[in-house]
Amino acid sequence: MVGNDIIDIEATKRSKDPNGLGWKRPGFIEKIFTESEQKLIATSKDPFITVWQLWSMKESAYKVFIQAGGEPFYNPKTIECQFESLNGHIKIKKLNLKSKSIVNQAYIFTVVGNENLNIKSKVINIGNDVKLQSKILRKHLLKDLSQTYNLEIAKLKIEKILNGIPRLYYVEKELELAISLTHCGSFGGYSFERLR
């Protein structure tokens, strides 16, 4: 199982809420972060980064939870995150997961999985045309998969099943691979892992 999430830093700074306050909006932090996460944010040198790193951990963990057959819900505060620098632990319902984040000036990218985190991921620039972004990202993922597993790219297909879970097919046969796709602003990221 694998879940990922990307935060385009510039795009996220252009917040869409009525007063453009973003994470500083009254009530925002309290609604989605646990007490201990709120402490991490309050004492952080860069609270913006801490907020969105934590958020990307929650979002990625949620994707793993849904992939594992969990029922959709919207209650980010019940997803508990801890991290030391770029490595994290996340508890979502009964699942205990591990995370790894990349933080740079352009984006925050987090990948979440089980214990070993034997996951291959990549971040790419997918441009600004929202109609093309998903196509570009999928193309990159399929190319990588075909090279990694020596499969014919034309026979690979990604399809979304119930609850938006992406699945991978070769001709009509479902492959034993977990994949996750994410995009935000002009960045996209994909991750994949062989299931045993």
Binding site: K16, D17, G27, F28, K31, N75
Partner: peptide
Amino acid sequence: SANLVDIVLDIEDKYDIEIDNDSM
């Protein structure tokens, strides 16, 4: 999904209600 929190907050402001996490 991060904007869904904004929608919840916008609804709270508009209708002057509080949406607890269980409802959310």
